[in-house]
């Protein structure tokens, strides 16, 4: 029974982190795609044929800063996998990761 409770306890934590990162990051990425559509002058958005949309620089800037952020998160993920493989334990102090060797 205590095994079941322990599993449930771990499950909801994973669910929480999962939603935050696993659903959050694609959502952020989606905003980037949206901004890219503005950046291409709305060409990338559904619009009428005779409508002319001017490209917008802010749209492009926003898009690429969002993509940079997502790439950064993926790099952190890779760093995390590597550190774990090397036998480091990563704990979080607030949101700042703390590395300790096992």
């Amino acid at each position: 029974m205590s095994q079941l409770l322990a599993a449930l306890d771990a499950s909801w934590r994973i669910l929480l982190v999962g939603i935050l990162l696993g659903a959050g990051l694609p959502a952020v990425f989606a905003f980037g795609i949206r901004a890219l559509a503005w950046g291409s002058g709305g060409e990338a958005e559904d619009h009428a044929v005779d409508e002319v949309n001017k490209p917008s620089l802010p749209g492009r800037l926003v898009a690429y800063s969002i993509f940079t952020l997502v790439v950064l998160m993926v790099l952190i993920g890779i760093g995390y996998i590597a550190a774990h493989g090397m036998g480091w334990v990563i704990t979080f102090d607030g949101i700042m990761p703390v590395f300790t060797h096992k």
């Binding site: 659903a23 795609i33 890219l36 990338a44």
Partner: peptide, 29 residues
């Protein structure tokens, strides 16, 4: 757990990119 996370993620992604032309959306993702 994976099912719930993925379903939520998918829903948000489709909401955010609604109206973005299909071909741009496919390429970006």
């Amino acid at each position: 757990i994976a099912l719930v996370v993925s379903a939520i993620g998918t829903k948000i992604v489709f909401m955010v990119t609604r109206g973005v032309a299909e071909r741009y959306r496919e390429a970006g993702f």
